[in-house]
Write a protein that binds this DNA or RNA. Structure first.
Length: 725
DNA sequence: GCAGTCGTCATTTTT
DNA sequence: TGACGACTGC
């Protein structure tokens, strides 16, 4: 170890009191409530280092779990920097990665195919469609997306088909039937979906005493990142793993829980304090990221939530710049504002990559994108397809999967006719019928039931010969060579060469890149898996970076969800309108608190300058809609915010503390003179327009109307002869 | 098997 | 508005 017993300086150096308390806590259960930007990863990393160097814990006894590969890689990297040595014995990984590792090690006990492969969401959806067809259930009555969603939700609650009794309603009984059929199909094909990885690993630890004992005595310390995002199954698994003696050190922030819709349970934080006795809560509230003003805004907003563990961010940095609010006329105006502020900042020397535009839903990116293109500003949108999700990559990998396992039906379906080999729908339907009747895979059905296939039987046989030949030639060959041959001999390369358009070129390049990627797995002895299995697992579990353009200096565009965990000197949060943010759906579902947390996440992404904006009119689904400013704007302490105009930069306080003033622009205000925000009105001289704001009350009350022909005007409400249209 | 057309729908996303 | 899937006709 690098540290002598008496020199623990590097481990606690530079930590604040709360961080130090967490890092040096006695080896008991701990819950660390880590506010945004409070040095959470630092605490995790130092805690592991502390356990190893001071508590003399073997790296072998430590398990650190994260949600994303990125977080896992970051943790391992920083840990090795701190300890100044590689820590291979230490298990650091995502929930899925760790579960996968266990299942590979104990595939027999888990009753899994030795060569089992991981099926991603897309495969799962296709597979479910086939199961539905097999059960004669129409897709319009049983939407595949809904069905997979339901099945995944059951798995996340650790429920198996046999856990349901017959008393459910018809719909539920059918879903259970589908779940069951899907499960059998997966078993037969040797496939495991994402949720199954976790559930299988949980069941393995729960039901196999020897394995449970093995891991319990091995993992003395389990550390969990982003604990507020754990789902029921992950929580159960942690409980089983920890047993009575394993110590859990969990880090999370209830205020940043924004994934309830995909099964995350914030309640796990509270549950943790009950289920793991002796734990103490450490709060990390000092923020090292944002200015005082930004933190004040964030604190003020999140204080509106009722169900909180309670936390108040603070900084010893100064107040910094005011938050600027821009009330745009419409979405284009909002875009112009953002773009011109970016241009100005860029001209003053701010790198583009220091600026991010955050929005609630992906659809909002289009207008912004167009604006940035017009202004010739480089940008990068997070989201979209990742490398291993591309069509051509998935095609090529499907051949590889078939080489490893002929019973992989989703892979078979994917490439049996890609490139086209005269095996159409009719043939496939027959083949599926045979497979269903005989209870075998498509591959075997094609072998034994060729007679039922009619004219196309020869084509199917040719396809099978191809796969067999590729498999034979793959023996003893390096993975890169195999991959290249697969792409060439399957005809995929030719297929995409013939495809027209500029996309085709990119696809060919991607295929070349795939060969390169395969090569890098040739001697990956790391996980003791055959290179091909290792490669396919990597493709499924770590689908790669989203989009290229990494190195370039460009403005970052992403959803608020995608921004979680990131930070930028300058942040633009756009579309702060009722219905958009908070989103209507969330309002309907009564999930305002999560939307508010999302807003909190957005605000706290910003280091120095935060811009907020909303549009009074927005084009949504092809329709121009009148929007009211988001309630969140009202909830941010008014002294933090200045309302700004596009060019001049002259600002005035946006909201008088509680009374009238501009505050009355906001949601929930009563209509004046029978007119309300967004109402269409007619003026004798100015023509038709829309009410966009009120100011003051009674005789002195003013109204802002955006006229169709003459633009926006402020009028005295009692004098203006406005009539509703 | 494929291109064109029509109808429907419309948060958020990692593994 | 526009993306995507199902359907139709060649």
């Amino acid at each position: 170890m690098r540290f002598d017993d008496d020199d623990i300086t590097p481990l606690i150096e530079g930590l604040n009191d709360a961080q130090r308390e967490a890092v040096t806590a006695p080896p008991e259960h701990r819950l660390v409530l880590a506010g945004a930007g409070s040095g959470k990863t630092r605490v995790l990393v130092h805690r592991v280092a502390w356990l190893i160097s001071v508590e003399n814990t073997s790296p072998h006894s430590v398990l650190a779990v994260t949600f994303t590969n990125k977080a896992a890689a970051e943790m391992r990297h920083r840990l090795e920097l701190l300890l100044d040595m590689p820590v291979r014995a230490l298990w650091v990984g995502t929930f899925h990665g760790i579960a996968h590792r266990m299942l590979r090690l104990h595939h027999k006990e888990a009753r899994l195919h030795q060569n089992f492969q991981i099926m991603d969401s897309d495969d799962q959806l296709r597979f479910i469609k086939r199961v539905l067809r097999g059960l004669d259930l129409p897709e319009d009555r049983w939407p595949p997306k809904t069905v997979t969603g339901w099945i995944n939700a059951q798995k996340e609650e650790a429920r198996r088909p046999e856990d349901f009794d017959d008393r459910g309603d018809f719909s539920q009984r059918q879903l259970v039937r589908i779940y069951s059929a899907y499960h059998n199909a997966c078993e037969q094909a040797g496939l495991v979906d994402f949720a199954e990885l976790l559930l299988r690993a949980f069941e393995l630890c729960r039901d196999d005493p020897a394995i449970r004992q093995h891991y319990r005595s091995r993992f003395r310390h389990i550390l969990v990142d982003e604990f507020q995002d754990t789902n029921t199954l992950q929580y159960k698994w942690l409980r089983v793993l920890a047993g009575d003696s394993g110590k859990l050190f969990v880090v999370g922030d209830d205020d940043q829980s924004v994934y309830s819709w995909r099964g995350a349970r914030v309640e796990n934080i509270v549950k943790f304090t009950r289920d793991f006795p002796g734990n103490e809560v450490v709060r990390l509230e000092q923020n090292y990221r944002s200015s005082g003003t930004i933190l004040k805004a964030a604190n003020g907003l999140i204080a509106r939530n009722s169900e909180r563990m309670g936390k108040q961010l603070w900084t010893d940095a100064g107040d910094g710049e005011s938050i600027q609010l821009y009330a745009a006329f419409n979405d284009l105006d909002e875009c112009d504002f953002v773009v011109s502020r970016i241009r100005e900042a860029h001209e003053r020397g701010t790198p583009l990559q220091d600026m991010a535009i955050l929005y609630r839903s992906n659809a909002q990116s289009r207008v912004l994108e167009e604006g940035l293109i017009r202004a010739r500003l480089a940008y990068r949108i997070y989201g979209g397809l990742r490398f291993f999700e591309r069509m051509e990559i998935r095609d090529a990998l499907a051949y590889l999967r078939l080489i490893g396992n002929r019973d992989d039906d989703p892979a078979f379906e994917r490439v049996v006719n890609t490139p086209t080999r005269g095996i159409g729908n009719t043939t496939m339907e027959r083949l599926r019928a045979v497979a269903r009747e005989q209870g075998v895979s498509l591959w075997n059905a094609a072998k034994t039931g060729a007679s039922a296939l009619g004219r196309s039987a020869g084509n199917v046989a040719l396809f099978q010969d191809l796969v067999d030949r590729l498999a034979r030639e793959a023996e003893g060959q390096a993975l890169g060579v195999v991959m290249d041959r697969v792409i060439e001999q399957s005809g995929l390369r030719e297929h995409y060469r013939k495809e027209k358009g500029e996309q085709a070129e990119a696809r060919l390049e991607n295929l070349d890149e795939l060969v390169t990627a395969a090569r890098s797995f040739e001697d990956s002895a790391e996980d003791d898996l055959p290179p091909m299995t290792s490669f396919l697992t990597h493709a499924a579990l770590e689908a790669g970076e989203r989009q290229a353009g990494e190195g370039e200096d460009c403005v970052q565009l992403m959803t608020l969800h995608a921004a979680k965990g990131l930070e930028f000197p300058t942040v633009f949060m756009v579309g702060l309108e009722e219905g958009l943010f908070p989103h209507v759906r969330a309002v309907q579902e009564g999930n305002i608190e999560e939307e508010r947390r999302l807003c909190y996440v957005g605000i706290t992404r910003s280091r120095r300058q935060l811009y907020l904006s909303y549009a009074e009119l927005r084009r949504l689904h092809g329709q121009e809609q009148v929007c009211m400013p988001s309630r969140f704007l009202r909830e941010i302490p008014s002294e933090c915010v200045l309302e700004t105009r596009p060019r001049s930069g002259t600002s005035r306080p946006a909201f008088a503390p509680r009374s009238a003033g501009l505050g009355s622009r906001f949601a929930g205000e009563p209509p004046r003179n029978g007119l309300k925000l967004g109402a269409h009105v007619r003026h004798p001289r100015f023509g038709e327009g829309v009410i966009t704001a009120f100011d003051g009350e009674g005789d002195r009350g003013r109204v802002e109307v955006s006229f169709r022909d003459v633009g926006s005007k402020w009028l005295i409400l009692s004098l203006a002869k406005l009539e509703a249209v």
